Simulated assay, not measured.
Amino acid sequence: MDPIAGAEIGARKRSIPGWLKFLIGFLAVDLVAIALVVVGLLLTGLRIGVDVQRLIGEPACMPSLLYLWHKPDRDTPRKGDYVVARMPETGMSIGARKGDRIVKQVAATEGDRVRIQGTELWINEKHTDRLWLSKSIPGKAPGDFDRDSVMVEHEIFLMGTTKESFDSRYWGTLRREEIIGYAIPLL
């Protein structure tokens, strides 16, 4: 056999197939992109959050599966902001456990009047929503959540974005100090 022809056959046997080269290149680009995202998050102080309930097919309270969140950059959340907080002690056996990280939307702040009567919620005399879970919480009846009060300084009323949300309608308000960050929905 011609030594040059033998070298060509050996080179073909040792060459990497085109599909494998493509896969290696694709993975390398993905790893670089992931590294850039991680470095960017570290430099900006942003974090990525995942709505695990939505991920596993349970009723979810966030409008998205993924969100960015960052530490508070101002003193008082505004209505409509998405905030990250720790779940308070509720005394009820549903929803997140005490201390779990939750993401909810600010529905009322200092000076707003919050009125719950039976299964209906009004904020500043405007019918806002219902208490959809009030009949399904063990040991509780719709009237057990009634309140009529004006929010005081640093008090925040939080609501999820779905009717199944376990939120301030059931466990009350949070103090501003209990907010650990702000969320930005992504997907």
Rank of each mutant, 00 (worst) to 15 (best):
A35D: 12
R14D: 15
M1W: 06
T128W: 04
R74K: 13
S15Y: 03
I116H: 00
P77F: 02
D81R: 08
L174M: 11
K71N: 09
L65M: 12
I16D: 03
W122Y: 11
R101I: 13
W19H: 15
V152M: 12
P17T: 07
E125C: 03
S136W: 07
A5T: 12
R130F: 10
I9P: 02
E177Q: 13
A183C: 04
L41F: 01
N124V: 00
R113C: 02
D81G: 09
D75W: 02
R169K: 13
E58N: 08
S15M: 11
I123S: 02
V29G: 04
H154L: 08
Q53Y: 02
D146R: 03
F157P: 06
I184F: 12
L46E: 11
L65R: 09
H70C: 06
E125H: 13
Q53P: 00
I24C: 12
L158I: 10
G160P: 11
G160N: 13
Q53E: 00
R176C: 11
L23T: 13
I137C: 07
M151K: 08
G91V: 09
G181T: 03
W19M: 14
P59C: 04
K13C: 15
V32W: 03
L187P: 05
R54E: 02
T173E: 14
T44D: 00
K126F: 11
S64F: 02
S168I: 09
P3V: 10
I16Y: 02
L23K: 12
S168G: 06
D144G: 08
I179F: 08
G160M: 12
D146F: 02
K71E: 13
